[in-house]
């Protein structure tokens, strides 16, 4: 009995790895559905609403890719993954792409054999504490109990930060954001740490968000971006340029409001190339000429997606900061569509 389970597991591993070797773009087209890995629930980034429809910043990217490849923003199967299961899910071919606040690091790129196709949110690790704890700096946290999601870069940053500053802490490992929230609100940990954007999103769901503050220290660089498996560059290109299409659209002033007007033809050749009325960019990717138009039509350009899901008008209230266009002092910089 035990033996058969072992061999069953090995078979699955073998078959899954076999599946991963084929062309993902063709697989997705043949399947008629994109399998997109997201978080198990982080409001603003990826969370199902009351009707079970997934919404959020990362979800919008999945939908944009589905629209570009399949022409249908709803042809997405959202696969919730935890910090622990996400990489196995991607490596085994269970999902085609991962859009789940995942930090681009050297070892994930090189050793885990993934390709980060770009950055859709420039983030850093922060600390969330209750106001009445009376702490104003992360350096005051000596001896604190810290809730932390396991299997994340934040876990390693935390260890390094406390070691460098020569202060101690007690880690409480948790599996999902929901568990962390429960423990933090019950006072089982003093501090909750993860990416600052995630903390803002979590705080927005609290009953009394104003009783909690983000400490000023941002202790790491966390470039979050979508990733795909190593070795399938055609598919990597599709996801990469869909992301850049959204970024370029904002830079070029293409919005969901003026999209159809722009498609009729403009005197800016780059907009024409992006929207497929000039040149054969879609063809080169193995997609329709209107791929970028379809992607932008889902939720608008990058700026619109940001504003709608996590921007300052939403309860999460994140400023653009580093995530503004390069023309406005941010880091968003799309290579030209040419």
């Amino acid at each position: 009995m035990n033996k058969s389970i072992l061999f069953g597991a090995l078979t699955v591993a073998g078959l899954a790895a076999g599946a991963a070797a084929a062309g993902t773009l063709d697989d997705v087209k043949a399947r008629g559905k994109l399998n997109c890995g997201v978080t198990t629930g982080l409001v603003g980034f990826a969370a199902p609403d009351a009707n079970g429809k997934w919404n959020g910043f990362d979800v919008s990217l999945c939908r944009a890719v589905a629209a570009a490849v399949l022409g249908d923003e709803n042809a997405v199967e959202f696969v919730p993954t935890t910090g622990k299961t996400r990489f196995t899910a991607l490596a085994s071919g269970e999902i085609d792409m991962l859009a789940r606040n995942t930090t681009w690091t050297f070892s994930r790129d090189v050793d885990l054999k993934f390709t980060f196709v770009g950055v859709n949110y420039y983030d850093g690790q922060g600390f969330l504490v209750p106001k009445d704890l009376g702490v104003s700096s992360a350096k005051d946290l000596d001896g604190a109990t810290v809730c932390i999601q396991t299997g994340t870069t934040t876990e390693l940053n935390l260890s390094d930060y406390f070691r460098v500053n020569n202060i101690s802490y007690e880690p409480v490992p948790i599996e999902t954001n929901a568990e962390g929230q429960q423990q933090f609100l019950a006072g089982a940990c003093d501090v909750y740490t993860t990416d600052a954007s995630g903390l803002a999103a979590t705080r927005a769901t609290f009953e009394n968000p104003d009783d909690y503050v983000l400490l000023p220290e941002i202790i790491s660089k966390e470039p979050l971006g979508p990733l795909v498996r190593h070795g399938d560059d055609e598919w990597g290109d599709v996801v990469r340029w869909t992301l850049y299409a959204l970024v370029s659209a904002e830079e070029l002033g293409v919005t969901s409001a003026n999209l159809s007007e722009m498609t009729a033809g403009t005197n800016n050749p780059e907009i024409n190339r992006l929207l497929g009325t000039e040149g054969t960019l879609g063809d080169m990717l193995g997609l329709d000429a209107g791929w970028a138009k379809a992607a932008i039509a889902v939720g608008g350009n990058y700026g619109e997606i940001f504003a709608k899901n996590i921007g300052e008008e939403t309860p999460i209230g994140l400023a653009r900061g580093l995530n503004a266009q390069w023309t406005e002092g941010g880091l968003l910089y799309s290579p030209p569509f040419r």
């Binding site: 490596a91 070892s107 396991t150 299997g151 876990e155 390693l156 490992p173």
Partner: peptide, 22 residues
């Protein structure tokens, strides 16, 4: 144990180590 964040061998070797090293 991992359900309650108890760091047994599934939590260390089969959890964080596996995840951080791939």
């Amino acid at each position: 144990a991992i359900a309650v964040g108890y760091m047994d061998i599934t939590g260390t070797l089969g959890g964080i180590t596996m995840n951080q090293t791939g």
